[in-house]
Simulated scan of single mutants.
Amino acid sequence: MQTNPTHTSLVAVGDSFTEGMSDLLPDGTYRGWADVLAARMAAVTPGFRYANLAVRGKLIRQIVEEQVDTAAAMRADVITLVGGLNDTLRPKCDMVLVRDLLTEAVERLAPHCGQLVLMRSPARQGPVQERFRPRMEALFACVDELAERHGALVVDLYGAPSLGDQRLWDVDRLHLTADGHRRVAEAVWQTLGYPPEDPEWQLPPEATLPPSWPARRAADARFARQHLLPWIGRRLTGRSSGDGLPPKRPELLPYADR
């Protein structure tokens, strides 16, 4: 009979993906895969502690400068690190620098936790992802190399058919829906050695009728107006959606569901 591993604490490091956008709670805050994972781990481990240092919009340099030392000092059983994807989506990106900074993050975290978890981030199917795919795959190659060198686990979300399905992405086309986050939590849960709750998390949702041409064009226009143009504006002015925002769970404390 398979038993649950004994992990007594979790610290999540990263950007909007780990903060939990767009898994919106009724109070206006975000839940996301890391919160879902923490709730599961807490349910099987009394006294389980959890911190989430991730903040939306952060580039890998900001993650290294603002989150890594704090996370390392917590000496958690498990630390998850997902970063660098925001860099790859910028018009200009120094992939050598991204690789160096990700390497620095792993080297500073791995000795100070029981298990470091890295990810090959999911990618929504579409022309935008195709444009940036070579950068993304270069980032994931670095993730694989660092994991092998430092004994980290890698969760391959990039290769999961379900997480490429457009129906698991929010209207902003950058963040997963609640079901997408649930599937990520399941993937990490299984990678850590817990018994599967959803063995088929990688399978896409059941087929549905595609939206009509007018509905697709209306969705495209709404996306451009509400999400694409503001995103471009922030890039042009050097602003970030996370400017001035603190982490939602900055301390490693006993988990309490909201």
Rank of each mutant, 00 (worst) to 15 (best):
P127C: 06
L101P: 12
L101F: 14
P127M: 10
E65C: 06
V98Q: 06
D156V: 02
L118S: 06
P134Q: 06
R133Q: 09
R75A: 00
A71W: 01
L176Y: 02
D144V: 06
G151K: 08
L85M: 14
V171N: 13
P134D: 04
L163G: 03
V117T: 05
S121G: 13
Q166R: 14
S121H: 11
N86G: 07
R99G: 15
V128Y: 09
T103A: 09
E107L: 13
A72G: 01
E148F: 04
L85Y: 13
V171K: 13
K92Y: 15
V68F: 01
A76V: 01
K92N: 13
L176F: 02
A147S: 03
G164Y: 08
V64I: 14
A105G: 11
D179F: 09
S162N: 09
S162P: 03
D87A: 04
A138W: 07
A178E: 09
L176T: 03
R131H: 12
A71K: 00
G151I: 09
P134W: 04
Q115N: 06
N86Y: 06
Q125I: 10
L89W: 15
G84H: 09
M74D: 00
Q166W: 15
C113F: 01
I63S: 02
T80A: 10
C142D: 13
Q125E: 13
A110Y: 00
V98W: 04
M95Q: 11
D144H: 04
L163W: 02
D100K: 15
L139E: 06
I79V: 09
L157A: 04
H150K: 02
L101A: 10
V128Q: 08
H112V: 00
T103Y: 03
R75Y: 00
G126A: 08
T80P: 09
P134S: 04
Y158V: 11
V68I: 06
V143T: 10
E107F: 02
A152F: 03
W169M: 08
K92H: 13
E130N: 14
